[in-house]
Design a protein around this nucleic acid. Structure first.
Lengths: 216, 216
DNA sequence: AAAGTAAGTAACTGGTTAGTTACCTATATT
DNA sequence: AATATAGGTAACTAACCAGTTACTTACTTT
């Protein structure tokens, strides 16, 4: 490997590689610590420790704590944006489409605590970024659902008086609440949640509610 | 008024009165600043300024920032606890009961931003208090709804396979989301929300969803 | 192999903040 | 009127934290 010293093939463990690794270690550590403590509570020293690098390097790669935070958010929004872009896949029955979309979102939240917490901090700390820098996400969701739901209304599956934006917000709320309001979940169930069966039961409840309501 | 110097009638503007007023001014200022900035972001000096008293007095009346925060939370939970205790009022139609309960909760949230934000901070900062100190609230709600919904099931208005806890959580989620996720609301509606008509439209959507779902 | 450059370190700085101290003032009791 | 006590103030302190400086190490290029 010492033979590969041409310009186009830098040493495998060379500066460039280490640099990239440092940058991504910082971003990973920052994601978990910003998610845990929020943009105010997170400490630059703690992020540096968790990333196993010197604090100076955070300023070298990201300029400031604020900038690092924005980068963490961008990463986070890109992830779900890409995911939902690729999730579009039309089936015949609009019920199947809606159910699949809800299921995908619900399990994404269940498996990405950092996403849930980062957006929650953003919501509380005045949406310093989310709303302004990454507004595309809900535009996409709206467009996506628009197609599915208009198709459903045309074919008589969905009530024509429905407001798509309300539906999106409601589904958002119904999925999110299990992960953002764990004190409430705890105080209602008095036991540990989030086994595979429990999650599936919650999702099923959401689907039943969206499809039929609670009244018979 | 200077004549009323007996033991049982202290001077109107005496120490006791001023003391009580100071205490409640601190509590009021603390509520609004803790709600705005959270338990970490709130500054004791800022609370003192807002209350128009010296910082020393906060330590005199409440001992510590943490203690003051707990007191603010206790106050907040007592308020809604008392409110929902008094809201029980059986009508014949379980639909009327459920609709009234949802309406009351929705408008309580709309009119009490501090409550919405305080519980949101609590949810994120690890429920240092809410879950442990004030678990009675959801027990009460559960008991209350339990009656209403069992009555509804017996009389064939409500689907018998429904889990009451899931219903409570869903209603909680559906009402809360308008006030906790304003970036999402903004990015869906692109306009200022929360006029009287808009609020009523949102509530109507929630009721329709709970009563019938979105499918026809 | 020498020079240049980027990665990395440790120790520091200036500003902020929870909590304290020493002191003053007004009210209530004797 | 004298004394005790609770309400109130300003200035301080010890800890903490974002960001910086001056320096060292190691890789890459010539």
């Amino acid at each position: 490997m010492e033979a590969l010293k041409q310009t186009s093939f830098p040493k495998v463990d060379g500066r460039e590689q280490r640099s990239k690794e440092s940058r991504s270690r910082i971003l990973k550590a920052a994601t978990s610590i910003f998610a845990e403590k929020g943009p105010e509570g997170a400490r630059v020293d703690e992020i540096a420790d968790a990333a196993g690098i010197n604090k100076r390097m955070i300023y070298h790669y990201f300029g400031s704590k604020e900038n690092l935070y924005v980068e963490v958010l961008r990463h986070n929004y890109n992830k779900i944006y890409t995911l939902s872009k690729n999730a579009i896949d039309f089936a015949d029955d609009p019920r199947v489409n809606v159910a699949r979309a809800i299921r995908a979102y619900f399990y994404y939240l269940a498996e990405n605590e950092a996403h849930v917490r980062l957006t929650s901090w953003e919501a509380l700390c005045g949406g310093r970024c989310a709303g302004k820098l990454f507004p595309k996400f809900f535009d996409l969701i709206e467009l996506e659902f628009d197609d599915i739901i208009k198709d459903g209304i045309e074919r008589g599956f969905i009530r024509p008086d429905i407001d798509i934006r309300q539906v999106i917000l409601s589904v958002h709320a119904l999925c999110l609440v299990y992960f953002t309001r764990q004190e409430v979940v705890q105080s209602l169930w008095h036991e540990d949640m989030f086994s595979e069966e429990m999650l599936e039961a919650c999702l099923e409840h959401i689907l039943k509610l969206v499809f039929d309501g609670i009244f018979s």
